[in-house]
């Protein structure tokens, strides 16, 4: 923090930001090009002289894109709400209560969060198939627990630990039971942490590909990442529509990132930095 930023620094910064954003920029520019300018020599022109929103219209008219968005929203929301709910109790116990085997439990949580998805997919696929859950929301919410729950527990434990312990002692003195302490004292203070955790779990669930790709193969139940990845034209890859769809899913993300960047960063780094 002590160092001052010089003009050279800002040049570097601009170059860096440009490189990071270039793919998005190009996709944005491509999404408003007419079809004829997406291919051939004119494909390399930065700006089109005939901007059009045709690709955007096509995404909604020719593809069930709205449906994909809805599916992703439902699956990611339910996954987030239920895993964070379950994880909040476990994390409270791990962070604040005294009992044997806490380190082992946290170790298991961490180990499970490192499990490769591919190692669980065949039994999970057979399970959802057996119970007729392929092409349903529940068919994704159940497997999403595999990564969402350990992630929630891990993040919440670090947030719960940051809450001063004196508060609990005081509540105990006043005769509050541990559950009362949890609901009346700890949870209100942990709201920011719970919120941050929810954002990260939501993003993870929203972005998931492998389970979604394998389990929900019907158009009606595809999620956004799978839906876009499987966009197929009759003869060629519909780059115009893909660009438009990418822009559409990126915009809410950009807004979310701008609004919650501090929280996201604190969530991402909470497990990795010792304070």
């Amino acid at each position: 923090m002590q160092k001052k930023a010089g003009p050279l620094f800002y040049v570097f910064l601009a170059v860096f930001v440009f490189f990071v954003m270039f793919p998005f920029l190009w996709i944005l520019l491509s999404s408003i090009k007419p079809l004829s300018e997406l291919f051939g020599d004119r494909a390399f022109n930065w700006f089109t002289s005939h901007p059009t929103l045709k690709s955007y219209v096509s995404v909604f008219v020719n593809y069930p894109f709205l449906r994909y968005l809805w599916n992703s929203t439902v699956v990611a929301t339910i996954t987030t709400v239920y895993t964070v709910f379950v994880a909040a109790f476990a994390a409270y116990a791990i962070a604040r209560l005294e009992f044997k085997g806490k380190a082992v439990i946290l170790g298991i949580v961490l180990a499970v969060s490192m499990f490769p998805q591919i190692a669980t997919i065949s039994p999970i696929y057979m399970f959802v198939k057996k119970f007729g859950l392929t092409n349903s929301y529940l068919g994704l919410i159940i497997p999403y627990t595999t990564f969402a729950l350990p992630l929630s527990i891990w993040l919440l434990v670090t947030f719960f630990r940051k809450i001063p312990f004196d508060l609990e002692e005081a509540a105990k003195m006043d005769g509050a039971t541990p559950m009362q302490t949890y609901f009346k004292v700890i949870l209100p203070l942990a709201v920011p942490g719970v919120f941050t955790t929810s954002i990260l779990v939501f993003i993870a669930a929203w972005n998931e590909f492998l389970f979604s790709f394998t389990i929900n193969t019907a158009e009606k139940y595809k999620t956004v990442p799978v839906g876009i990845a499987m966009f197929q034209g009759q003869y060629t890859i519909p780059w115009g529509e893909i660009s438009a769809a990418t822009v559409i899913v990126t915009i809410p993300l950009v807004i979310m990132v701008l609004l919650f960047q501090r929280r996201i960063v604190s969530g991402l780094t909470s497990g990795s930095v010792k304070e």
Binding site: V224, V226, L253, M256, I264
Partner: peptide, 8 residues
Amino acid sequence: AIPTAVSA
């Protein structure tokens, strides 16, 4: 933050 499949 964007889905890996979309960035791919």
